[in-house]
């Protein structure tokens, strides 16, 4: 692999940020980051999405929590620490949470009950959860269809996901009840689709 093809810590983090910014400003809008995912080293022990998000958001000023049921989860944790300078911490203390494989319901509950949501005086002291899902779609064709409303959305917007437990949404709305406190979500899949659900987004589940 030549240098030009590997994820560049200046130019590619900026490109990812611009996509993420667009997705955060327009909740549910899917941005395509597949070109950036292809630049992640093959030896990377976490998902390519987690890798590029960690490189873009983390440094020694913030902490992260990494969850994965893969056997090399510890390697991934250390690789993120080593490449970003950020430190791994418990889920209730972390600024950024990377959920790389779908946890059991109990695990989702324990993460969501304790995740930081900031305070009324400092609502920014809240966590951002980056959730690796199997697939995202801008139509209602996947297992978990959502109708989104709120700032950044002109009327309503449809997003659907495979490999995302609806428990995330239930607990999200519980923890985000008292705006401006709450936590923000970033969703991504292995095909390079990325979307965001900031705390202001009201989500209605749509079952057919």
């Amino acid at each position: 692999m030549t240098n030009a093809e590997t994820f560049h810590h200046v130019h590619d983090t900026r490109k990812l940020y611009r996509h993420l910014l667009d997705s955060m400003a327009r909740p549910g809008k899917i941005n395509d980051i597949s070109v950036l995912l292809h630049k992640v080293p093959e030896t990377c022990p976490c998902s390519t999405g987690t890798y590029v998000l960690a490189q873009t958001l983390l440094d020694q000023q913030v902490s992260f929590y990494y969850y994965s049921q893969e056997i090399n989860a510890d390697d991934a944790e250390h690789a993120i620490e080593w490449t970003t300078g950020s430190r791994h911490t418990a889920s209730h203390a972390a600024d950024y949470l990377f959920i790389d494989t779908p946890p059991e319901i109990d695990e989702i509950d324990s993460i969501m009950q304790s995740v930081r949501i900031g305070t009324l005086t400092e609502p920014e002291k809240s966590a951002t959860i980056a959730l690796h899902v199997r697939k995202l779609s801008g139509a209602d064709d996947l297992a978990l269809p959502m109708v989104l409303r709120g700032p950044g959305i002109n009327g309503w917007h449809i997003l659907s996901a495979d490999g995302m437990n609806s428990e995330w949404l239930r607990l999200r709305s519980e923890r985000n009840r008292e705006y401006p406190t709450g936590c923000d979500f970033i969703l991504f899949d292995d095909d390079g689709r990325i979307a965001a659900l900031p705390r202001t987004t009201r989500i209605e589940r749509r079952d057919f």
Binding site: H9, T13, L21, E124
Partner: peptide, 20 residues
């Protein structure tokens, strides 16, 4: 790059809390 990261993290938070 450290300064940019901090400004970017802050901007993403700012978008999630309009006007704050």
């Amino acid at each position: 790059e450290g300064s940019k990261k901090e400004i970017r993290r802050t901007t993403l938070k700012a978008i999630a809390i309009p006007g704050y």
